[in-house]
């Protein structure tokens, strides 16, 4: 169980407040997707979770213990930063030896399997590897340490589609096998959609969404409907409509709430405006769309500009 309680962090040099009173609880054996805009504070949060940074205020408690300077607890945490680091003139096998010294649960057996599955030569110098291969090495070493908590900062970036799929599969099977808790930060929300069961969206250092993926997906839909005799201005008062587009009689928009409730409200609206819904279909949003929808008012992007006349 990871409890992030009121954590704030300001970078001393730039005075930028990266995290602002963040409170998140992450259950054991879950895969949490950490999403946010660039500079939202995802990497900072992961570094605090890994015990690299200290929070200015608030606490990060993992299994009831503070993580900073807690070497016993850190033995159960593998942190995969966005910029990988390996020693100069070393091989994957030598790195494995290094990991073994600090992570008592490190499994050479699992390491061997992963190396073989990823098709890497463990005796080749790492400085001759490509960026993607180094990323694979990072994943192999992190998983072989058999951690209880895996903190991944944009880990799948730089992997080719095949390796990405394989790495995802390994992550899934690792979690299934060991019951580990994974926190995944990525800009590629399709990756998170496949893996995560819980999403935390951070913006400007604050938590915007902290819900399970199912919750999120059942709470906002894109609707497509065909209206006979539509009103000049289609703006139902009791529905928070965004991304409204209109092509003839076909209306498309996003609205929060359950699909049943929204449909009922729309039918009531049509009755009062002398129009008829001839076709109505709620469509699940992708995580990308949810991300854009949630941040539509933050000034990052223009997401509300649905053009009725387009």
């Amino acid at each position: 169980m990871i409890n992030i309680m009121n954590v704030s962090k300001t970078y001393p040099q730039s005075k930028i407040k990266s995290l602002d009173s963040i409170t998140v609880n992450i259950k054991d054996s879950s895969i949490m997707g950490l999403v946010g805009t660039n500079g939202a504070g995802k990497s900072t949060l992961l570094r605090i979770l890994a015990g690299v940074y200290t929070p200015d205020c608030g606490d990060v408690i993992i299994d009831g213990h503070l993580v900073f300077e807690n070497s016993k607890l850190k033995q159960q945490i593998s942190y995969l930063p966005d910029n990988h680091y390996f020693f100069k003139s070393t091989t994957l096998n030598q790195m494995a030896d290094f990991y073994k010294r600090f992570y008592p649960d490190f499994s050479y057996e699992y390491f061997g399997k992963l190396v073989s599955d990823f098709g890497l030569n463990p005796n080749r110098l790492l400085n001759t590897f490509s960026k993607g291969m180094l990323r694979q090495c990072e994943v192999i070493l992190a998983l072989s340490s058999m951690p209880k908590y895996l903190l991944c900062d944009e880990t799948f970036d730089g992997l080719d589609p095949l390796m990405r799929a394989y790495a995802k599969k390994e992550f899934m099977s690792y979690v299934a096998k060991t019951g580990a808790t994974v926190i995944l930060s990525s800009h590629n929300l399709y990756d998170l959609e496949d893996l995560s069961d819980h999403i935390v969206l951070i913006d400007d250092g604050k938590v915007v969404i902290d819900r399970s993926l199912d919750d999120i997906k059942e709470n906002v839909f894109r609707y497509q409907m065909v209206l006979e005799n539509p009103p000049t201005d289609f703006l139902p008062d009791d529905i928070d409509i965004s991304s409204l587009t209109c092509r003839g009689k076909l209306y498309s928009f996003i609205a929060p709430g359950s699909a049943v409730q929204v449909e009922e409200k729309l039918r009531n609206y049509c009755l009062s405006n002398n129009c008829t819904i001839t076709y109505f279909e709620p469509i699940h949003l992708t995580l990308d769309e949810i991300f854009c929808y949630e941040l539509r008012d933050k000034g990052h992007i223009s997401f509300t500009g649905g053009d009725l006349n387009a």
Binding site: S71, K74, Q75, I77, Y79, P81, F102
Partner: peptide, 17 residues
């Protein structure tokens, strides 16, 4: 360096050690 700081400071060894 940022990358090496991430690596070494996340290792299970206290800074004093």
């Amino acid at each position: 360096k940022k990358d090496s700081a991430d690596f070494f400071l996340s290792l299970p060894i206290t800074r004093t050690s």
